[in-house]
Design a protein around this nucleic acid. Structure first.
Lengths: 216, 216
DNA sequence: CGATCGGATATGATATGCAATCGCACCGCC
DNA sequence: GGCGGTGCGATTGCATATCATATCCGATCG
């Protein structure tokens, strides 16, 4: 029963730091001194280091030996690369998911979608972003393609950062909601072609919006 | 001058463990008890845990809280997934590398190839496998596409494990050597099409060999 | 015979201390 | 006045000792 509450300190620290980075609480390039951050979070340095290493693997922070960790800078080139990778992987993965999903897996995806909608209408910005990621990953059938799912999960997390930093959610929310419905319907009905098309379109449009917003 | 020798304890432990896992020194499924492994390597648990976390991110070990780490099992499905991902990403990445490489980057790749050949003729099996990975990654221009390069680096490491476990290097070495020459020549001359084709062919053939060897 | 409880064991986390390294100001030298 | 070496403070990396906690497994009891 302690599923969500307990977890280890390292995991909670990881989530806390990720959240702060994604929401801009720690600006890109900001140095993360271990003693300071550990004291701020009320933990010792050991789980903090574990969290930092995890976030380094996720690509959110960078660190070199004896030189400390910093929030990774953002760049137009990296955004382009992230979305390029997603464009290569995600549509096909979603199509395969649509073809092979079981009823149980469809139920999981449906639940993820409804939670996303709930968070979105409640204006829980960062929660909605997380739920958005979980919904998209649920279409890939994490149990069947664990590596692909994990990979896209990370790429989504990296994407999230750019979206949060550069795109205002004005009209995007409404359009996204409708698109998610279309995507889910196609996916759940086994229409991988359509689902892949919607996904590709979605990723590509976000990329274009971002590249335009980041300026140069 | 301490480039290669120094590094941190955690890094050396990571390399040591990775090497043992790839070479089968630790069998798939084997539990890795922290005290035992730490004592065996003559380090404390702290850098060991760091190494284990890193290897978990690489996909070589699995661990859950309070349940310890184990060497990840291997499966036909995972092999298929790894090579499927490589097939999606690597040919295009190599083609882009061929199109954009500078003279300096070509020199780096050439050096990697010669080191690979040296290790191969010297029958340094696991070293050759590492050099093989480095050569292939050098074609992707790690400085321009760091995420893609890092990603393929990991996929290669995961592939390595299956190759080491299931494929004997008998005739493969000779064929691979010739193919690497063809691949490098096409790449260095800017012929991305051909380089991508050779890469795809290479990955696909290895996948087929593996799937046949793994039985099931 | 099955379920529950409790002890052994291993991991997760803290505290403390020390060594290694880095960054930087300082200083002599050309 | 610019330049390179040098020492010092600050921070990270690692070791050790210790405690807390979760998991596993066997004994006990209904």
């Amino acid at each position: 029963m302690t599923e969500v509450l307990s977890r280890t300190v390292a995991e909670r620290v990881t989530d806390a730091l990720r959240s702060r980075i994604l929401s801009g609480g720690y600006a890109p390039g900001a140095p993360l001194r271990q003693d300071a951050v550990a004291a701020e979070l009320g933990v010792s340095r050991i789980p903090l280091r574990e969290a930092l290493n995890h976030l380094q693997a996720e690509g959110l922070v960078a660190g070199a030996a004896h030189r400390g960790f910093q929030v990774r800078g953002v760049s137009r080139a990296e955004a382009d690369e992230i979305f390029g990778l997603r464009l290569q992987l995600e549509p096909l993965a979603v199509a395969e998911g649509a073809a092979k999903a079981t009823d149980e897996e469809r139920a999981v995806a449906a639940k993820a979608l409804s939670q996303l909608n709930a968070a979105s209408t409640a204006r829980q910005l960062s929660l909605a972003a997380d739920q958005n990621r979980l919904f998209h990953v649920s279409l890939i059938l994490p149990r069947r393609s664990p590596l692909t799912a994990e990979l896209l999960n990370r790429l989504h997390a990296a994407s999230q950062r750019y979206v949060a930093l550069h795109l205002s959610p004005d009209g995007r929310d409404e359009k996204a909601k409708a698109e998610h419905e279309r995507l889910y319907d196609a996916w759940a009905s086994g229409d991988g072609q359509t689902a892949a098309g919607i996904t590709a379109e979605h990723v590509e449009r976000t990329r274009q919006d971002l590249l335009a917003a980041i300026e140069a």
